[in-house]
Amino acid sequence: MTPQERHADGDFGWHLGVLLSAYHGSVTPLLGELPHATRGYQILSTVVHGDQPTQAALAAHLSIDRTVMTYLIDDLVKAGLVERQLNPADRRARKIVVTPLGASTLAELEQRVRKAEESLLGGLDERQRAAFRDLLRRVACGLRDIEPQADPCDAAEHALTELP
């Protein structure tokens, strides 16, 4: 029995692991010099498409430890992709804002990533790919109760409406 036959019916974790591994293997090389590769991409995308009022909220939204987020943001700032600005609603807090270079970099990277995603889902026709993306979004958004202060659905909905 081949691994495909053995896992065809039910090892959900294995299926997710294979997909995630293939995603990272396909996308990471496309990100070039972006600091922290896929993590940096997720942060940059969330800064552009989300509305996280503080660096702490951004960390919570992405499930990244706040102290680790500080170092990740530092590297994105050094690369000129984002900057920290005072949050007008709370001057004690900082909001992470994309720079013009960050916006243009993300736009280019999103095109590359989208092509890689389409290739990964190449075994599905266009309708099935759309359904798969929708179902994946629904499942991910259904998990938002795990972290009530973060709302992944808002970012996912916004990102999906921005795709070509």
Rank of each mutant, 00 (worst) to 15 (best):
R39G: 06
Q85N: 06
A130D: 10
L163N: 09
L34E: 10
L30D: 01
Q85A: 14
V47P: 11
D74N: 15
T54V: 07
V139A: 09
L163V: 13
G80E: 06
G102Y: 07
S21F: 10
L72W: 00
L160Y: 14
A93W: 01
Q42G: 14
R133G: 08
D90Y: 12
H15V: 00
D134A: 15
L121I: 00
L86A: 06
P53A: 04
R6I: 11
A103T: 07
G102S: 04
L58C: 04
G122C: 04
D125H: 07
P3E: 12
E83F: 03
A93E: 10
R138M: 02
L72M: 00
R137F: 03
T54A: 01
V98R: 12
G102W: 07
I73D: 10
S104T: 10
L143I: 04
Q149V: 13
G10P: 08
S21P: 01
T67Q: 07
L76N: 07
K95L: 08
P35E: 04
E108F: 06
D74C: 07
R94H: 14
Q52C: 12
A60T: 15
L121E: 04
I96C: 12
V27T: 12
V139E: 04
V48Q: 03
Y71R: 15
Q85S: 08
A116I: 05
E110K: 15
L120A: 04
A89T: 07
T161Q: 12
L136K: 14
E108H: 12
